[in-house]
């Protein structure tokens, strides 16, 4: 009798251990953002961006807020990130890797997040962490987060510099974008490409070298920015 009990305990411990290991393994999944220009990686591991095309054009900075991240099974949200927002900075490789704690236990078919900060957060006063205004993604001349910053050099722009600071949260100037990307469970890392060639098309032509305020241009480019994101595997 006692031997049978011992065997049962042993079996239980073994199964539990296996399940726990699997669970632990399943928990450590992450999204990895990969900034691209015409399909090629822009930044190396040190966060340095080489000139894309001779000395006429470069991308020196890409920063954006990835907020309200969740995983869905069909239409149902099965996992929701406890962190409100992640500031992703292409020049800081650590931020390109967003962990999804506990998500490995879930079955999901897509990931969804907001590119930018919602209006409620924008009117909630000062916040900490990645939303601290000291992170350099908050306007000073008027209130509001900058949802996406892309900066660099373009010989067709005055002063050879271009700056796209896309933000605005109120009414028709709202620039927040919802991004959904299909995914399949199984991998531990989901790589999302950020293809910038389309949004920078008008910069390269010298038409749009500076957007620093909310408005129609910011809204239009933000809609284009949402299309930068695509699954790579």
């Amino acid at each position: 009798m006692s031997r049978a009990i011992l065997i049962l305990i042993g079996l239980f411990a073994s199964v539990s251990s296996t399940l726990y290991a699997g669970d632990k393994k399943g928990q450590s999944i992450a999204i990895v953002f990969r900034p691209l220009y015409n399909g090629k990686e822009i930044f190396d591991t040190s966060g340095t961006s080489p000139l894309v095309s001779g000395d006429t054009f470069s991308i020196d900075q890409i920063r954006f807020y990835c907020s309200d991240l969740c995983l869905l099974n069909g239409e149902d949200v099965v996992w929701h990130d406890k962190e409100k927002s992640h500031l992703v900075d292409a020049g800081n490789s650590g931020t390109l890797h967003v962990n999804l704690p506990g998500a490995g236990r879930k079955y999901f078919t897509s990931v969804r997040f907001n590119l930018g900060i919602d209006s409620t957060t924008n009117v909630s006063g000062v916040l900490g962490g990645d939303l601290d205004p000291a992170k350099g993604m908050y306007w000073t001349w008027q209130s509001g987060y900058i949802n996406l910053k892309i900066e660099g050099i373009c010989s067709k722009c005055d002063g050879r510099k271009y700056r796209l600071h896309l933000g605005g949260y109120a009414g028709e100037n709202a620039t927040i974008q919802s991004v959904s990307i299909p995914m399949l469970p199984g991998d531990r890392e989901f790589v999302i490409g950020i293809e910038t060639s389309e949004i920078l098309h008008s910069v390269r032509d010298g038409y749009t070298c500076s957007i620093m305020i909310p408005g129609k241009q910011a809204v239009e480019l933000s809609a284009l920015a949402a299309k930068m994101f695509m699954p790579l595997k």
Partner: peptide
Amino acid sequence: AVNHLDVQPLAPIANRDEMDFSL
């Protein structure tokens, strides 16, 4: 231009004609 008291000081600190500094 400023929607909340908490973020109000950012404006004069950054304004070139006032404190011309950064957070």
